[in-house]
């Protein structure tokens, strides 16, 4: 625990002159790796023993790296498994093998996915819905959150609680009513119907995050700009928005993720095949009376990898965009 609470900048509480300790740990670590190697050789080149030995060694030598590395493996492994299934030949889809690159690896599932299913059509539908929702959602939330942050207007407190309340609505409770409304507007089987439904579910949480972030920006900044002749909206546009890039990009990312993979509402609103989104399309591949794990896995990889890259690229914003708003500066 002693090292856990120290901050990066304090050198004071480093382990006391632990040369001996470090040396002992290094020796044990090397021993563990060697043990792994021996076991691996004895068990007919079973390299998993070496991997285990190396991991144990890392735990002893650098415990933090040991923990972080093993947790990273736990995080990533299921993703690797999907990739692995997508590469399996059609005769070995169900297999007990733990190898990531399966024997007889092939891209046939990907080829089949493109040739036998309207995969690009699903992606296009999903993408057009998702981008529209994210853009409009961020725009609507950005101004709304500004009002919550800078004014103490009548009804502000109940409205803030209401925003939180919308998160409490049991999923599924609104599916039938939303379908009825969309049907009454004549928008079933149209991407617009789904876009409108998604925007309204995205806005409350977006406002919540953005409001927290705006709160950390001192009002003096806008006041100074207004003294210089800007009006309130110009000050918002020129000062607040640029400063809020991390939060805005996080909100965009969240809205993107949520509508990219939404399934329950999409299923009732989009019934026609030409407007099908990828969650609907992929789900059909593994329905009750037909199962095509190969194509399903290939599709999953293709829809997941871009989002993962986007998310990992944004992960530095994730911290500042989400939490700065909650900490008083």
């Amino acid at each position: 625990m002693s090292t856990l609470t120290q901050t990066p900048t304090t050198a004071v509480s480093r382990p006391p002159a632990g040369l001996n300790w470090t040396q002992i740990r290094q020796i044990i670590a090397i021993g563990l790796v060697v043990l792994g190697l021996i076991l691996a050789l004895l068990n007919g080149m079973n390299w998993s023993y070496l991997a285990l030995g190396a991991l144990a060694g890392l735990f002893v030598w650098k415990p933090f790296h040991g923990i972080l590395l093993s947790y990273s493996v736990i995080s990533v492994y299921p993703v690797l498994r999907i990739i692995s299934i997508s590469l399996r030949p059609s005769t070995g889809l169900l297999s007990r093998s733990l190898e990531i690159i399966p024997p007889g690896a092939t891209f046939q599932s990907y080829v089949n996915l493109f040739n036998e299913e309207p995969f690009l059509q699903w992606i296009w539908n999903s993408l057009s819905i998702t981008v529209t929702v994210s853009v409009i959602g961020v725009a609507v939330a950005a101004t709304g959150a500004y009002a919550f942050s800078r004014w103490r207007f009548l009804g502000r407190r109940p409205a803030l609680i209401f925003l939180l309340t919308t998160q409490m609505i049991p999923a599924g409770m609104l599916v039938i009513p939303i379908f009825v409304i969309v049907a009454q507007l004549g928008l079933t089987n149209q991407v617009i119907g789904l876009i409108l439904a998604y925007i309204s579910t995205a806005v409350p949480f977006s406002i919540w995050i953005l409001k927290g972030y705006y709160d950390t920006i001192p009002p003096d900044l806008e006041e100074a700009a207004m003294v210089d002749g800007c009006n309130r909206m110009e000050a918002f546009w020129r000062i607040i928005l640029p400063l809020s890039t991390p939060a805005l990009s996080i909100v965009f990312l969240f809205n993107f993720l949520a509508s990219w993979s939404e399934f329950i509402v999409a299923k009732v609103i989009l019934q026609a095949q030409t407007v099908s989104t990828w969650p609907l399309g992929l789900n059909e591949l593994i329905g009750t009376f037909q199962t095509d794990w190969g194509k399903y896995a290939a599709g999953s990889v293709l829809v997941t990898v871009p989002v993962l890259l986007l998310f990992m690229w944004q992960s530095k914003y994730l911290i500042s965009g989400l939490t700065l708003g909650s900490v008083k500066s």
Binding site: V180, A183, K267, V268, Q271, A272, F289
Partner: peptide, 24 residues
């Protein structure tokens, strides 16, 4: 002809929902 594939339960629920909305 547009063929929309639906599993047993989904088909049943969707038909009822559409019936309630009066369209679709």
């Amino acid at each position: 002809l547009e063929i929309v594939q639906k599993e047993t339960e989904v088909l049943r629920n969707d038909l009822l929902t559409a019936g309630l909305a009066g369209s679709g």
